[in-house]
Write a protein that binds this DNA or RNA. Structure first.
Lengths: 150, 150
DNA sequence: TTCAGTGCAAACCGTTTGCACTAGA
DNA sequence: TCTAGTGCAAACGGTTTGCACTGAA
């Protein structure tokens, strides 16, 4: 993902109906640049050097309003102790690397189609499903390199 | 699930290599009886009336040792703020009811087979998967009744 | 100019820990 | 008897909140 420049980030915020402050621009940029679905703390540490006055509370408040505005999705990490943030709001699946704790996006229209067909014929009594997300646990083979579907 | 009697619960604990205390028997019973994958707090509240001296700390410690002994699995709830416990340790999938916050077990060998076949032909570069879990979000139609696959 | 957003510190809440005491084997 | 487990209270870590101040529109 090529990191958008300040103007584009500004635009993205105002388009979402949010006031484009310096802090929010920096926070949004960090979210787009950091790999593996960062935590609030990781965003904070990434933003801090260039913006020494930004506080952790502000990061949390910004993340909340981004989620409310539909710019971001909250994701639970594998052990359910902290929250992660996903800048891809479309429906997709996740790979969980147990070694690096990264959460890697996995989009696969073929898989979506397969699931859709499967659940078209096989429903539930008393439950109306509206979204499916496959969690795939495993490990990266080379932790420094990226993961790609083959 | 028919709630096992005290002797069976006792057995289950010793089989798992755990000392069968009054507290642990009560906690294990609560886990088996409570629907929708309870939190530590829910277990505590369920156990308290009949065992007024059991403390929340003991519940957490018991849950930890149950997990370590393979009697239980930890599950993250939808918003990732608290931990839930699953007495079914086999590989299976989950339905998340957004209204009641229940997590409902969903076993489906046909689905497992489908996923296995799909990922046999479609792998990842630099990622070795070892387990798959489908998260299905939706809502119960009648919140008082059970959900069943059809 | 105005009010949404910020920064700070304190509160919160689920979970963990330390330690003296208790009870299962 | 001996040591794993318990109960209590204090600590912890991630997140939220209250409030006076600031800066985007």
């Amino acid at each position: 993902m090529p990191a958008p420049n300040r103007d584009q980030l500004h635009q993205r915020l105002t388009d979402a109906g949010l006031r484009a402050t310096q802090q929010r621009i920096a926070i949004l940029e960090a979210l787009l640049v950091l790999p593996g679905h960062p935590t609030a703390e990781q965003v904070f540490r990434s933003v801090r050097p260039a913006n020494p006055t930004v506080s952790l509370g502000t990061v949390y408040k910004a993340l909340d309003s981004f989620v409310a505005a539909g710019l971001l999705k909250r994701v639970a990490d594998a052990d359910g102790t902290r929250r992660r943030y996903d800048t891809d709001c479309s429906n997709h699946h996740h790979l969980f690397c147990q070694e690096t704790q990264e959460i890697i996006d996995y989009c696969d229209p073929k898989l979506d189609q397969l699931l859709q067909e499967f659940f078209a014929s096989r429903g539930f009594d008393n439950f109306q499903p509206h979204s499916f997300s496959l969690h795939i646990s495993g490990n990266k083979l080379d932790t420094r390199k990226d993961v790609k579907p083959r």
